[in-house]
Write a protein that binds this DNA or RNA. Structure first.
Lengths: 335, 335
DNA sequence: TAAATTTGCACAATCGTTTGAGCGTTTTTT
DNA sequence: AAAAAACGCTCAAACGATTGTGCAAATTTA
């Protein structure tokens, strides 16, 4: 059923070595005669031979595989990122093993272990949690790791991320410039560096505008539910904000749901500015004004850095922040 | 750096065999003494040994890996499906290699070849194109394949799909019951069985209601662009439809774009009914009325059928159609 | 014609694991 | 005390590919 070098060698009455040398294109280098080469090639074609990547991997200690650890393929942000990474990996003749960590630190570490056991040649990861001992161990002892989106602050692991501070700052400025003063911010996971950078951008913009007293940050998850619940609380406060800055796509959906339930309209009664870009946001009611991350560029760069490391090329800078872009919708009103 | 059975064996002065038997839990079966077992376990723990899955795969002819061929992770429908499949595969202690075929038949076939070369234990695939010789060859000669979403008509490859005929029929009935007569249908890829079943459902419902003269089917791709262009054409015809039945999520986005450009409103001027369900559709303007496919169930079932085959359990029925569900939005008006 | 060179290929080890068979040594049985 | 059984472990082959070395036979050189 399955052909191997030895089945071909036997049928042709030559050695496995010779077959291997011909089929791996080293016939010339080892002085295999044209005649023998032709016979071997013909037979390999006929029986549709394909080398076993498993055996090659064992021998060469290279699996031609990279691992991708992502928090959730169900989130369009990560799905798009994964899609680009997979195609970049494919372009280089490698394949991708995808592990969905479900935003869970122990799943993440388990996934890392699994990838190491499979001897992948490199790993691209969106980390979960703040403990970097495991990833760092893998990166320095076994296989190169490059982080995307999230990273560990003040820690020398290569990463590619959005300039989240700028995103947070610019977004908040946009709201302030539109006349808003009471701007609430609903955040995601507090152990996430991007989240904290966004918050820092928000705070700096507020303080710069002398709006420190209006600062308000709540929430703890990048989920629809978190956005929903925090908005519910927000709307029951004495001092209602005139604008909400939601730090992710999912959070925004929750915010919208709560606002609608309260019978309020966006942006007439309350303005909303979201992080993350997604086609569907143009079709929403109203189309969302948002801070888009350069997902594609980030994915491409992460792949490039990883493959440079795999090939032993010392990368230049390897902690990169790419600028976000503000995309105008109609969810922010001028006061 | 990397530990192996032999490094441990050498340090302990025992044979590789013994170490292997202890660590694979066969110490008892092969009468290894408690003392030796303890020594080996301790040393393995100490040096953090993990067996090489590559070597195990070579020896056991099992890679504990399944391949997933999907047309596009950027499409939320397939992203969600992939997410569920990956987690089902993970649950069984396997990992998933994901290949994005970009809706391209030759990418699909190339992907198949690659998965076979990697000796995956099984494949879950959303096929592209109508030529099944390659997939069939793989399925009957190398590794079990299960199709999801799309399939080949009258061909004995196992698949799990939506009852697309019912989806098309029910959706069209819903429009007819709401008083629509001129209902246009914008389809996707014409070589796709699900597409054709949806169209058949549409046609049957139209004919049953005596609306054969209003039947109109156009389009050829599951893309935003196709939805957009076909709607542009549709709106320039003499007899404008009062409702559009779009056969996928992406097509619907294009339809909406074109309708908005024409300055028309949904559903006041034109009703829209979409195939596929997605959280974002609830937040759109207006929320879409749609035919939701049981994505999660399909994914779970496909995984189950595949693993049954891998374990040699003869599956019962293996060509399954699951019922779709209509989800009420506000994009269909009563005439 | 003998020596040197080139040609054409095969041997055997290796990657890390698994597994049937085997072989001394100790313990039990008779 | 001799035979049988149990114990505790090792040998070596195998999975499928790669690769340095080696060895005849054919060809060229001197």
């Amino acid at each position: 059923m399955k052909e191997s070098l030895s089945t071909i060698a036997e049928r042709l009455g030559v050695s496995v070595t010779t077959v291997s040398r011909v089929l791996s294109g080293n016939a010339g280098k080892y002085r295999i005669s044209k005649a023998t080469e032709a016979r071997i090639r013909a037979e390999a074609d006929r029986c549709n031979y394909a080398p076993s990547l498993v055996a090659q991997s064992l021998r060469s200690r290279q699996t031609k595989t990279i691992g991708l650890l992502t928090p959730s393929l169900a989130n369009p942000y990560f799905a798009e990122m994964s899609s680009v990474i997979i195609s970049e990996v494919h372009r280089r003749g490698f394949t991708t093993i995808v592990i969905d960590t479900m935003e869970n630190e122990s799943n993440f570490n388990e996934g890392l272990t699994k990838l190491v056991a499979r001897q992948v040649d490199g790993i691209i990861a969106v980390p979960c949690g703040q403990d970097h001992t495991m990833v760092d161990g893998v990166n320095s002892n076994f296989v190169p790791v490059v982080l995307v989106d999230r990273y560990y602050e003040n820690f020398p692991l290569p990463y590619v991320t959005t300039n989240n501070y700028k995103g947070g700052y610019d977004a908040t400025r946009l709201l302030i410039d539109a006349g808003h003063r009471s701007i609430a911010c609903i955040q995601g996971v507090r152990t996430s560096a991007p989240n904290n950078e966004r918050v820092r951008g928000y705070r700096d913009a507020m303080e710069e505008a002398g709006l420190k007293e209006f600062e308000f940050v709540a929430g703890n998850e990048f989920s629809i539910q978190n956005g929903y619940l925090e908005t519910k609380l927000l709307l029951s406060r004495q001092l209602k904000p005139t604008a909400i800055f939601a730090l992710s796509n999912n959070i925004s959906l929750g915010v919208i749901k709560a606002i609608r339930e309260a019978g309020l309209r966006i942006p007439e009664d309350l303005s909303l500015l979201s992080f993350d870009n997604y086609t569907y946001m143009d079709y929403m009611e109203p189309p969302l004004t948002r801070v888009g991350q350069p997902v594609e560029d980030m994915a491409i760069l992460a792949a490039k850095i990883l493959f440079d490391r795999i090939e032993g090329i010392a990368p230049g800078a390897s902690q990169l922040r790419l600028s976000p872009t503000i995309i105008q919708g109609a969810s922010v009103s001028r006061l």
